[in-house]
Design a protein around this nucleic acid. Structure first.
Length: 244
DNA sequence: AACAGCGTCAACCGCCGAGAA
DNA sequence: ATTCTCGGCGGTTGACGCTGT
């Protein structure tokens, strides 16, 4: 058995993050606020997987997918290593994408997700056979084909949206804030957002970023992302909380 | 309209290794 | 040398939204 999970600590909150907690965490990172009542591990994860300003959002492009497949055959399930080849992507994101989409895509193509070779063992073909027997074959196959096409169209759209996001990320925070005052709370919370909602979900939500460029934020994040100083500061946090 | 099944993804779990005590 | 603590990272879970019946 391993050690007890750090989140078992009394008074340490778990579950989905609230906007307020994100604010606290961002504020804590920038060094003028209190840390949310979460364990360091959870804060680190939240920052890496969600709050990082250089994060790309939206679906993976076909090129990215192919690159993931290639890297997976070279590195195996070392998602962190794979993620280092995709600036703005997290290991979690890549892992999720692999498990939910790429695996299936390879299977549909009759390829073994592990070896990427044509799957000659029964698995895939058997599936198709069973489906044809049970669902009158051609109808089901047509549906599957339509689904694949639909998803591929989505990927193309997602790729275009990516470009939009990349362009958005080049914009200075200061100028963004004035444009983004209308950003709704729901779009901030959501992991996916429409073009109408505009670029990064937290832009405009952190007034203390005003005047700072995105790059400055990234730099300040990088300097603390080792999180070495985070746990000792938990005590300070409690003191600050009591003062509030 | 209601329900079931499925897909997605954020967040947590827990093992492992490194480094400190 | 041993024990303890913590961060890293792959595996897993569960909530939520979407789609089909």
């Amino acid at each position: 058995m391993g050690r007890q999970p750090c989140c078992d600590k009394v008074g340490v909150k778990r579950g989905p993050w609230t906007i307020e907690e994100d604010h606290k965490l961002m504020s804590f990172i920038i060094n003028n606020g209190s840390k949310p009542c979460r364990c360091g591990k959870s804060c680190r994860l939240r920052c890496i997987n969600y709050l990082r300003p250089d994060l790309k959002r939206g679906g993976f492009t076909e090129m990215e997918e192919n690159q993931i497949i290639q890297l997976h055959s070279l590195l195996g399930k070392r998602w962190f290593k794979i993620a280092t080849h995709f600036p703005g992507r997290t290991d979690n994101e890549i892992k999720n994408h692999w498990n939910t989409r790429i695996k299936k895509r390879l299977k549909l193509l009759g390829l073994d997700p592990l070896t990427k070779k044509q799957n000659t063992s029964k698995g895939y073909e058997e599936n198709v056979e069973i489906k044809s027997l049970h669902n009158n074959g051609t109808k089901e196959m047509k549906k599957t084909k339509e689904k694949i096409e639909e998803k591929e169209n989505k990927v193309t759209w997602d790729a275009e949206f990516h470009n939009y996001e990349i362009q958005s990320s080049k914009v200075d925070f200061g100028s963004c804030i004035s444009q983004e005052n209308n950003t709704s709370v729901s779009s901030y919370c959501s992991s996916s957002f429409s073009i109408d909602d505009s670029s990064y979900p937290y832009v405009g939500q952190f007034p203390y970023l005003e005047g700072n460029s995105l790059q400055q934020w990234v730099d300040s994040m990088d300097s603390i992302l080792s999180w070495d100083s985070l746990n000792p500061l938990e005590e300070d946090f409690h003191l600050l909380e009591n003062k509030e």
